[in-house]
């Protein structure tokens, strides 16, 4: 049972200015419930940082630091080093957080360094598939054919012309002890993976699919539904890996055609206009099928 008073004592508190229905704030709340108060967090510049810490406010009840856009992993490395020096590392979780842009694009070098040095840090990437904080520009994790303000659709374009970067595989290539992909649509899965990460020493990577209301252009109530559809279509495979080996995948219970997922989102609206768009949807279906095959999702 949870009382009203208790909800107000959550480690990531209400009162932040995230959009109504933001799946990123939902995930942070769920993750913090597991990590508990003996946690120090860093954040990259991005939506989460902006909506959770407008001075003098803060939604964090754990020690938290934001420095810059691309250095969350390096700042967390420094936090870990300081704790080690003080002999306090055991018993304190260090997490580094960033958006897909702060993680897979501009922050990749710092993240790679943190992985390679194997700092005892859990890095969490909140993947909403674009630079949302600056107004929905494309990132290396923007899905194929998604409209963003810098990969717009038009007479000559179906939106983002590149598939999503395989960021979890990049993490795995560092042979870190734990890599996991989860989703705001599956809170138990998410919390289970955070719990597991806490038991592992060394660098860990967790990527969470977090639908974004204004960036993906849908009604706020669909945040969870979309996150689940991304998984059930095969477009967002959830799995766990130890070092370079995948050790578990979340099976698809009932395969859903990608169209069901795409049609709820304004960022794919242009694919539903004509035959050429149809053909693009076919391509996306093929990508989902390949994922199902590659990761053994069914």
């Amino acid at each position: 049972m949870l009382t009203k008073e208790e909800t107000r004592n959550e480690l990531f508190t209400m009162g932040h200015t995230g959009c109504s229905g933001c799946a990123q704030s939902m995930s942070v709340k769920l993750i913090m419930e597991i990590l508990g108060k003996n946690t120090i967090a860093t954040s990259a510049t991005g939506c989460l940082e902006v909506f959770s810490t407008r001075w003098p406010e803060s939604s964090w009840k754990i020690p938290w630091i934001h420095s810059l856009f691309e250095n969350s992993a390096a700042v967390a490395s420094g936090v870990e080093a300081a704790l080690k020096y003080m002999g306090k590392k055991d018993g304190i979780n260090v997490i580094a957080q960033g958006g897909d842009g702060g993680t897979a694009d501009i922050g990749l070098q710092a993240l790679s360094g943190m992985f390679e040095r194997n700092h005892d840090v859990l890095y969490i990437c909140y993947d909403n598939g674009a630079y949302m904080n600056t107004g929905y520009q494309r990132s290396g994790l923007t899905p194929f054919d998604a409209y963003t303000t810098t990969s717009p659709s038009g007479k000559e374009s179906f939106g983002n012309n590149r598939p999503k970067k395989y960021m979890p595989e990049i993490a795995m290539a560092h042979r870190i002890p734990y890599t996991a992909v989860s989703s705001a649509g599956y809170p138990m899965d998410l919390q289970k993976k955070v719990k597991k990460a806490m038991t592992i020493k060394g660098a860990k990577y967790l990527q969470v699919d977090v639908p974004c209301v204004p960036g993906w252009k849908y009604e706020p109530r669909y945040s969870v539904k979309l996150a689940q559809l991304a998984v059930q279509t095969g477009l967002y495979p959830l799995f766990e890996a130890e070092y370079d080996k995948i050790i578990s995948v979340k099976k698809i219970s009932k395969k859903v055609p990608v169209e069901e997922y795409l049609k709820l989102q304004g960022r794919f609206k242009h694919l539903f206009k004509d035959e050429a768009g149809r053909a693009e949807i076919e391509k996306i279906q093929k990508m989902a099928d390949e994922n199902i095959e590659r990761y053994g999702l069914m």
Binding site: E49, V50, R54, W60, K61, W64
Partner: peptide, 8 residues
């Protein structure tokens, strides 16, 4: 004493 550093 969990302060938040580097706020907006």
């Amino acid at each position: 004493n969990p302060y938040s550093f580097g706020t907006l």
